[in-house]
C-alpha cells in the first residue's frame, strides 16, 4: 500500500490545518482557571483530617440486617438500592440512545480464524465460570453484579470480535428481555415488599439474602448484555 498517507482520510484531517486549539489568551485564562481549581481542590484535600471514621461503622452496625456479609454489596443493593436501580436504568438509557442513533455497522469480520476459535473454546467457558464465581462471591467477599456483569459482557465482546453472532431466534425479544431484566426485577421486588408495609426497596431481613442474589443475577445478565450491545455500537 504505497503512499496512503496522501490520499487517506486522516491525511486530509492532518493536512487541513486544524485550528490548533484555543489562542494564547484563551489558553492563559484556561491555565489560570485550572490553576485555581488545582490549588482549591488540593487545599481541600489536605485540609481534611487525616483520619476520619466515615460511614464504615454505621454500615458494619447494620450489616447483619442487610442479608449479605460484604459491606460494599450491602451498600449497593440494600442501603443505597436506589442508586443501583437508577444506575441500571442509566445503562439502559445509554443503550437506548445508542440504538436510536444508528443501526449496527455491518460486520465485515474476516470469517472464522482457527486461532481465535481455539482461544474462544478455552477462554469463553472460563470467563463465564469466573463471572458466576464473582456473582456468588458478592455475598461475602469482593465481587458482585457489576464485576460479574463486566466479565460476562467482556465475554460477549470477545465472542463478537471472533465472528460469533447471536442466533436469529435470540436476536429479537429475548435480547430485549435480557437487557431489561435487571431493572425490571429490581423494581418488581422493590414494589413487592411494599405489599408488606415496608418502604420501597427495603427487604425483610429474613429473605434479604435470597432477594439480593436474585436481583444480582438479573442485574449481571442485564449489565453483560448492555455492555456487549454498547460495544456493538448500534441497533442489531
Amino acid at each position: 500500500m504505497p503512499d496512503t498517507r496522501s490520499t487517506s482520510v486522516p491525511g486530509t484531517v492532518r493536512a487541513r490545518a486544524l485550528p490548533a486549539g484555543p489562542g494564547p489568551t484563551a489558553r492563559l485564562i484556561l491555565l489560570l482557571l485550572l490553576a485555581a481549581v488545582l490549588v482549591g481542590l488540593a487545599t481541600a484535600v489536605l485540609s481534611l483530617p487525616p483520619v476520619a471514621p466515615g460511614l464504615g461503622a454505621v454500615v458494619t452496625e447494620h450489616l447483619p440486617a442487610s442479608g449479605v456479609e460484604h459491606p460494599v454489596t450491602a451498600v449497593l443493593l440494600n442501603f443505597r438500592g436506589y442508586d443501583t436501580l437508577l444506575e441500571l436504568a442509566v445503562l439502559w438509557l445509554a443503550l437506548l440512545a445508542v440504538w436510536s442513533l444508528t443501526p449496527a455497522p455491518l460486520a465485515h469480520e474476516p470469517t472464522a480464524n482457527p486461532m481465535l476459535a481455539a482461544l474462544n473454546q478455552l477462554l469463553a467457558p472460563l470467563m463465564i465460570l469466573v463471572a458466576g464465581y464473582l456473582l456468588w462471591n458478592g455475598g461475602h467477599a469482593p465481587g458482585g453484579a457489576f464485576q460479574a456483569g463486566a466479565v460476562l459482557g467482556a465475554t460477549g465482546v470477545l465472542l463478537h470480535l471472533s465472528g460469533r453472532r447471536l442466533p436469529r431466534a435470540v436476536d429479537g425479544w429475548p435480547l430485549r428481555l435480557a437487557l431489561l431484566l435487571g431493572v425490571a426485577l429490581f423494581s418488581l421486588i422493590g414494589l413487592a415488599v411494599m405489599a408488606g408495609g415496608a418502604p420501597f426497596l427495603t427487604y425483610p431481613p429474613a429473605s434479604a439474602g435470597g432477594l439480593i442474589l436474585a436481583i444480582e443475577a438479573a442485574a449481571t445478565l442485564s449489565i453483560a448484555a448492555t455492555l456487549a450491545a454498547l460495544f456493538l455500537g448500534g441497533r442489531p
Partner: peptide, 23 residues
C-alpha cells in the same frame, strides 16, 4: 474487567471505524 476488557476494545474499534485507511 472494564478497563482491560471493554474500554480498550471499544476505543480500538472506534479508532478503526474512525480512520479506516489509517496506516
Amino acid at each position: 474487567a472494564i478497563g482491560a476488557g471493554v474500554t480498550g476494545a471499544l476505543l480500538l474499534a472506534a479508532l478503526a471505524r474512525l480512520h479506516p485507511d489509517r496506516p
